[in-house]
Design a protein around this nucleic acid. Structure first.
Lengths: 209, 209
DNA sequence: ATTTTTTTATTGAACGTTCAATCAATAAAA
DNA sequence: TTTTATTGATTGAACGTTCAATAAAAAAAT
């Protein structure tokens, strides 16, 4: 089947196959042969397109984080108001975007998160993503709360979002995205109410209901 | 050095060495030789006392979860009041117990959490622990809130606790336990306030009646 | 329109490495 | 002398990478 212009196709196939393999047997047993079989190609092709297994894993993590960032960014772009409550709701919704929370993606995300502790290349990607979430939250909260309280609110909401992801990735049924979104939004609502700031119709603040 | 009664000593040494090795190079590179070297013994001894590497990993995870459970249980036993707010505060404090949050333990915990998705033996231990935290929280909230809201409160607080752990395990400086405790307690306070239930001096609940 | 040549894409067996497990040998205490 | 504890070289399996061989398409030549 050799043809020209196979590179972007194969790269995408292999990244998807990596997630499928990790979902199936975990990162530790996701060998190059297994990944290649999922993509319907031979093992050698991985070194050809990614320079080796590490390159493929890094590309896979980068894709997951990019997709997550884009899910958040697109929801914020679609806002018709600049109210901080609306941005915060969009950040929550983006983090529980359907495309991010399917079994393979969530399990791969968690596997990478754990191994990023000891792989510099993955740790870098992880930190960029972490800081982006915290900075986004912190900046919006800062428009509503004093600095110290804004920081705490951002830390807590970021932890709640990650915790819901984590628990969702581990339950066999997968994450209940509607419930996770609702819990995070209710936390946000309570937080603002506790500081004497009402939230105005959180369920209609973003475009998707 | 050979003497009788070495078994409990060696088992403890090897479990501790396992956490040290995972903290140092991650679960993927924590080989039996490396673990044994941390304990100052030879590799063969692992199979002798634990039947193999898997047995050692399972014993290590079991110890972490047992310690965590004991940290919570002992704080609840020490309560002088039966107020649900006090139990909830004790559960929070127990989960951020100092002995549980040092670097090696936290990293090992996260590594096991990720690999429990694909190792039945670890998954079982993980589920027991998860359900215990959720059941404890849920039962105490049930004394304050209607059933549906109690369940949601338990789910959210459990996620917040896990999320704070997760983020703490990944930051180079480790988890700031005081801050994590404070954020979780503030969340609890807001939650109860939102339901019209004041909390009475959460930091002194375990001392006053 | 054929045939030939070149380029691109892919394979999979071979290689060197690393690992967990084994077990005969050894050493110290009982 | 017997028992308990421990070693560490050996073994076999599994892994990622490499690379000569191959196949198909594209380009060039006839």
């Amino acid at each position: 089947m050799p043809k020209v212009g196979m590179e972007p196709i194969r790269r995408q196939q292999l990244i998807k196959a990596t997630m499928a393999a990790i979902d199936e047997v975990g990162l530790a047993d996701a060998t190059v042969v297994r990944i290649a079989r999922h993509a319907g190609v031979s093992a050698g092709i991985i070194s050809h397109y990614f320079g080796g297994k590490d390159g493929l894993l890094e590309a896979t993590m980068r894709q997951i984080l990019n997709d997550l960032g884009e899910a958040v960014a697109s929801r914020r772009r679609a806002l018709t108001t600049d109210a901080p409550e609306a941005h915060l709701a969009a950040i929550i919704d983006g983090n529980f975007d359907r495309s991010q929370v399917t079994g393979p993606v969530a399990k791969t995300w968690l596997a990478f998160w754990a191994s990023s502790m000891h792989r510099p290349a993955l740790e870098r990607l992880q930190n960029v993503n972490d800081r982006r979430l915290y900075a986004n939250l912190s900046h919006q909260f800062r428009r509503l709360l004093p600095k110290a309280q804004a920081r705490d609110a951002a830390r807590a909401l970021a932890a709640l979002i990650d915790g819901l992801w984590l628990r969702g990735a581990l339950t066999p049924e997968g994450l209940d995205t509607d419930r996770a979104r609702r819990l995070a939004r209710e936390y946000l609502e309570q937080l603002l109410k506790a500081h004497g700031l009402g939230i105005r119709h959180p369920e209609t603040l973003s475009l998707e209901s």
